[in-house]
Design a binder for these strands. Structure first.
Length: 416
DNA sequence: TCTGGGGTCCTAGGACCC
DNA sequence: TCTGGGGTCCTAGGACCC
């Protein structure tokens, strides 16, 4: 078997670049990519964090995830754009179309990242670096935004290659290049080394990927458990995971929201939880799935987080049924603190076809029929064609949480 | 006007059973 | 009286990714 050739394609400052080209295409003479600018949420609704930043923003030490307040303090002339997820979805799909002409095996890893398996394509299309340059330039010329492309023999190295120098670059990181190109980098640059792990490693004087690579794996396993071995393998460039173009089986679905105001009473909390359950349970039914584990979570205005979950021994998918359990769970843990964030999650999913058998205990047939009817009306006439009367004059949204419209949109999996 | 939302995986501890 | 041990299931929380 010949060695694999894997590309990783990553959009440079994705949300910001996409907003920039959108504005250029609509006659705005200013290119956001050339000035200090960010994409960020609205602080008045308590969504004010930096989601993406232009390259000129970096010299102000503004970080993704920090508050707009802090970002503006660092750079008063900062230009702030609102997020536009439909635009991002369109840009992502357009890019995928181009990639599909270079390999039958493509994996979408997130809205702005793809893996492409180029193994055995060389004879047909040409040398990997030439083709990567061609892909990069086609995306730039045809779609208007720049990407980085990383090339190597596995996904991890291709992804690490992509991070080397930005923007608009093609890099290789083949195994023989690991010591020179990857080992000098700080450990924080390694995939799967987050804040907690980097702190632990640095406390033991492991500061570069190279020093991690030469550490004792048995010690790492004791110190960091299984992620210790994983990152040790990564630091040595080892990764066997495959480029998958099939959708992975969904493990859970959740929706959560930060509320523009503090919730101080149970009734309001229950109503917001209903709006979240509406979205989650609709997604469940559209996927013909039932849940056996229901979880509620909330964050207080002092930023303490709580969660509470319950195993359901007969699978369910009814809005009202899930909502009832969610409210019980919420009431069991909530002790009256002001709440700024609420979340609903369902997991331990199973197919909904055999479930009927178990429903004889309680007759939820009418409920399920009603849910189905409402789902269909919303599908045909828009999601707000039918809303619950409890939301009328409440000032609250009847449906909360993003429902991805595109059925084929694959969710990111946390591991390669 | 300070701190998003959507995921996956792992672990520790307690309950319960034999 | 001086305190097993192995197994499974459940729950809360924390790590990581984009």
């Amino acid at each position: 078997m010949s060695e694999r050739i894997i590309f990783h394609i990553d959009v440079n400052s994705a949300y910001l670049s996409w907003e920039a080209i959108h504005r250029l295409q609509h006659g705005d003479p200013l290119d956001l990519r050339t000035i200090p600018s960010i994409v960020g949420g609205d602080p008045t609704t308590r969504h004010g964090i930096v989601l993406a930043k232009s390259i000129p923003t970096k010299k102000y030490n503004i970080k993704t995830g920090e508050t707009l307040y802090s970002a503006k303090t660092k750079c008063p002339e900062l230009v702030i754009a609102s997020p536009n997820y439909q635009l991002y979805q369109r840009c992502s799909s357009a890019m995928k179309e181009i990639l599909e002409s270079y390999s039958p095996l493509i994996q979408q890893y997130s809205i702005d990242e793809y893996f492409l398996d180029y193994t055995n394509m060389e004879k047909l299309l040409g040398a990997p670096t030439d083709v990567a340059l061609q892909i990069k330039n086609r995306i730039k010329n045809e779609l208007g935004f720049t990407v980085n492309i990383g090339i190597s023999t596995n996904k991890l190295l291709a992804k690490m290659a992509c991070e080397l120098e930005k923007p608009d670059k093609v890099h290789t990181l083949f195994p023989h290049e690991i010591p020179s190109k990857m080992w000098p980098l700080p450990i924080e640059d390694l995939f799967f080394v987050g804040r907690a792990t980097s702190k632990k490693l640095r406390s033991r004087n492991i500061t570069t990927i190279g020093s991690l690579a030469t550490s004792d794996p048995h010690w790492l396993n004791l110190y960091l458990k299984s992620p210790g071995l994983l990152i040790w393998n990564y630091a040595n460039g080892r990764d066997e995971s495959l480029v998958r173009n099939t959708r992975s089986i969904v493990k859970g679905m959740g929706n959560s929201t930060t509320i523009p105001f503090d919730v101080e009473n149970r009734e309001t909390a229950h109503l917001i939880l209903l709006s979240l359950v509406e979205t989650v349970s609709t997604r469940l039914r559209q996927a013909r799935i039932c849940t056996q584990l229901v979880s509620v979570s909330f964050r207080t205005n002092e930023f303490f987080s709580y969660s509470h979950q319950r195993k359901i021994h007969s699978p369910i998918d009814c809005t009202n049924q899930i909502h009832e359990i969610i409210c019980q769970l919420f009431d069991e843990v909530w002790n009256g603190q002001a709440v700024r964030h609420l979340g609903v999650r369902v997991s331990e999913l199973c197919q909904n076809d055999f479930v009927q058998l178990d429903l004889f205990t309680k007759n939820f047939d009418r409920q399920r029929l009603l849910d189905q009817t409402i789902d269909q009306l919303r599908l045909r006439f828009g999601s707000h064609a039918v809303i619950r009367s409890s939301f009328l004059n409440s000032g609250l949204k009847a449906l909360t949480g993003g429902v991805i419209q595109d059925e084929d949109y694959p969710m990111m999996s946390s591991i390669l």
